[in-house]
Simulated scan of single mutants.
Amino acid sequence: VCESTDFEITNNLYIIISGNRNQETNWTDIEFTLQGLSKYPRAEKFLFMMFLVMYMVILLGNSTLIILTLLDSRLHTPMYFFLSNLSFLDILYTSSFIPSTMIHFLSEKKKISLTRCVVQMSVSFTMASTECVLLAVMAYDRYVAICIPLRYPIIMSKALCIQMAALSWGLGFLNSLTQTILAVRLPFCGKKVINHFVCEILAFLKLACTDISLNEITLMLGNVIFLFVPLLLISISYIFILSTVLRINSAGGRKKAFSTCSAHITVVTMFYGSILFMYIKPKSKDTASDKLIALCYGVVTPMLNPIIYSLRNTEVHDAMKKLTARQFWKKG
């Protein structure tokens, strides 16, 4: 019979007080097995190569955008400030799980300690929550730029941009902290096998041998706050944007206005489309689709973000040419 287990959350999150009150257990002594696609070793070797290439693209693409934004004064605008935050977020998010996942692809024992599992879960949850809010902030920036262009420099001041970015990160951290604390207080018994590539919170909660209704309620509340509310704000912003753009007389003006929003709309569609399907779809016994969808919004989206934002962006192209020319002349 599984007894309730109380966790003492210390500053270093190190000691767990187990059901046996006279015994203390280190977090590093508790291990989970990440199942992933262990039944298909050839598929895992293929995924290792795919992850390696995609991770290199993620690091290169997002780092380049951050460097260009810092070095080129023409990119010192609110839109590129938020885009730099998004790129930095994507680097942290993917770095929290891709390297360890690649190691597990090549190892027979896919073990992970409870400490590493909790850190991985909390970091990825923080980044995902922050991105939801940040995408809504970027939609507001586009709304002000197109609907109130004359007041744009005044409204989107440097101080406001920093406050909005800090709010995004702060809310994401608080949501992750709440969900993580509630998750690690659960007792686990039986085989500790996580049916996923990573320590994903839904797969983690399925291992608990007690009632998880409180976790489900907080997760549902978090989904409403960090998925539906930002998505609603994004939709409202683009309703006003569309209304404003359609009133523009010249076709060139409408095209230019739409082009400034096309990248953001594409990223929002990819991110929310995959993550909403992942968390809202009916539960099923077959979790292979869940893993592939998690791969989509966990790896593919961060890889495509810098490509989407720079593909048809002349400002980014000019900044890249300027930086390349500068490095060429230094070497010359």
Rank of each mutant, 00 (worst) to 15 (best):
T180E: 00
G170N: 07
A145Y: 13
M156D: 05
A325H: 06
L47K: 11
S168T: 03
W169K: 00
F277G: 10
K330S: 07
C199A: 15
S96G: 14
T266K: 03
E315Q: 11
P230W: 01
I275P: 00
L167G: 00
D72G: 07
A325W: 10
T115E: 00
H104N: 06
P41L: 12
N26W: 01
L114S: 07
K255F: 00
P78D: 00
Y309P: 06
E24L: 14
N85S: 15
V53Y: 04
N26H: 06
P187R: 09
N62Q: 04
K39G: 12
K109H: 06
I103G: 09
T130S: 12
Y55Q: 13
M220R: 14
A128C: 00
A139E: 12
E108Y: 02
T210Y: 03
W27D: 07
A208R: 13
C117Q: 10
L70A: 15
I280Y: 04
C2H: 02
A43K: 05
N305F: 14
D211C: 12
N26F: 02
F105A: 04
C189I: 05
N20D: 15
Y55V: 09
P99C: 03
F88P: 05
F97Q: 03
C132Q: 11
N215L: 07
P149V: 13
F32T: 02
D29G: 08
L232I: 05
L13S: 03
M138V: 14
K158R: 12
T69M: 02
D286F: 15
T33Q: 13
F97S: 02
H104D: 13
V119F: 11
L219T: 01
Y14V: 07
S95F: 14
I162Q: 12
T130Q: 09
Q163E: 10
I217M: 13
E131L: 13
E108R: 10
I9G: 06
F97Y: 11
T218K: 08
I307W: 10
L221A: 14
L207T: 02
G332N: 00
K285I: 06
S213K: 03
H76Y: 08
N249C: 15
L167S: 00
T101G: 04
C296E: 00
S122C: 11
D290K: 03
F97A: 09
N215S: 11
T130I: 08
K192S: 07
L304P: 07
F277H: 10
A145F: 14
Y272A: 05
I308A: 01
V267K: 03
L233Q: 13
L276P: 08
M49E: 11
F240D: 10
G172H: 02
H317T: 12
L83K: 04
S129R: 09
I67W: 03
F240S: 04
C147S: 05
T180V: 01
T324I: 15
L47Q: 03
I98W: 03
W329M: 14
G222Q: 08
Y297W: 04
K331P: 10
L233G: 10
F240W: 07
K192D: 02
G252I: 01
K109A: 15
F7I: 09
L114K: 08
